[in-house]
């Protein structure tokens, strides 16, 4: 055997195993970090996960502090965000994909929508403050925050819905138009049934983002400790991430445990929503495949 070749081959094999270790360590590092996070939060927070956490309002005494107002606030916020953002988002996506003529202008609009998805959330907070809070006199109400959050996640929903609609094969559109169906009939009977799974997946993931966002709420001046439940869309409120943020920055160490308990609640909500998203995606995939 050629000695030179042997050395070269060995060198390649060594390089290969080094790379394997490098990649392995990189992903392992992430898992370790997540494990640390979960352990830290779990150890601190589990003790505070009792009924009083859900039935008490915020308090300056850590042992009495609860997230009743924040939980109801977050749910009320989502009651505005989900219908508003889904309606506008899906309608825009349908218009851009099915109705709009493909030209420079629509390409420009689409590029801007994609770019908006990357704009920092605090900027959307300022937008909400200017437009919804001040110009439309909505103040720091659920409606103002809900509309701001809707605008924040709209680009994500539009892009996800556009991709879902685009992935419906053109030959299904041809089949439908070829039978004399109108555009609207084709959209409701052919395109939506095939794409609604992916649209829901994208939407739910963006709702998770809206639930976790804090920056726009701070800009809008959402209060932290309130002793009442919101009475309507124009009532003020507080939300889970705001509440957690407030607890986390308090000096008493006991508040760290309450914050951890809050984080657990938030994570449970997020994981549940993501599970729904995965469920819808699998269902949609199955429908398209079999």
């Amino acid at each position: 055997m050629d000695n030179n070749l042997l050395i070269k081959t060995n060198r390649r094999i060594v390089k290969d195993s080094i790379m394997k270790w490098l990649f392995g360590t990189a992903s392992f590092l992430l898992i370790v970090l997540i494990a640390f996070l979960f352990y830290g939060i779990g150890a601190d927070g589990v003790g505070r996960l009792n009924l009083s956490l859900f039935t008490n309002f915020g308090s300056r005494f850590p042992e009495q502090a609860g997230l009743k107002a924040a939980l109801v606030g977050t749910l009320s916020l989502m009651a505005v965000v989900i219908p508003v953002s889904m309606f506008i988002g899906i309608c825009s996506a349908i218009y851009l994909e099915e109705y709009a003529v493909k030209n420079k202008w629509t390409a420009f609009i689409e590029m801007n929508i994609s770019n908006l998805a990357g704009v920092p959330s605090v900027v959307f907070g300022l937008l909400g403050l200017t437009v919804f809070s001040r110009a439309l006199f909505l103040g720091n109400s659920i409606l103002a925050a809900g509309l701001t959050m809707s605008v924040l996640i709209l680009p994500i929903i539009i892009v996800a819905s556009q991709e879902a609609i685009r992935s419906v094969p053109d030959n299904l559109r041809e089949a439908s138009y070829g039978m004399g169906a109108t555009k609207w009939q084709t959209i409701t009977q052919v395109i939506m049934p095939s794409s609604i799974g992916s649209i829901l997946t994208g939407s739910i993931l963006s709702f998770s983002r809206a639930i976790g966002e804090t920056a726009p709420l701070i800009v809008l001046g959402i209060p932290v400790i309130i002793q009442f439940l919101p009475t309507g869309p124009l009532s003020t409120f507080t939300a889970l991430p705001m509440q957690i943020y407030d607890w986390a920055k308090r000096p008493q160490p006991e508040f760290a445990d309450v914050a951890s308990a809050g984080i657990i609640v938030l994570l449970v909500i997020l994981v549940t929503m993501n599970a729904f998203a995965i469920y819808f995606r699998n269902k949609a995939m199955k429908k398209l495949q079999n």
């Binding site: 094969p169 030959n171 299904l172 041809e174 089949a175 439908s176 138009y177 070829g178 039978m179 004399g180 169906a181 109108t182 052919v190 049934p193 095939s194 429908k287 398209l288």
Partner: peptide, 21 residues
């Protein structure tokens, strides 16, 4: 209107294209 025309004229395409129904 194309919808009227196509309700009297069917079309079969190169690749079978049944709906996912």
């Amino acid at each position: 209107p194309v919808e009227l025309l196509r309700s009297k004229v069917g079309m079969v395409f190169q690749k079978p294209n049944p709906f996912p129904k």
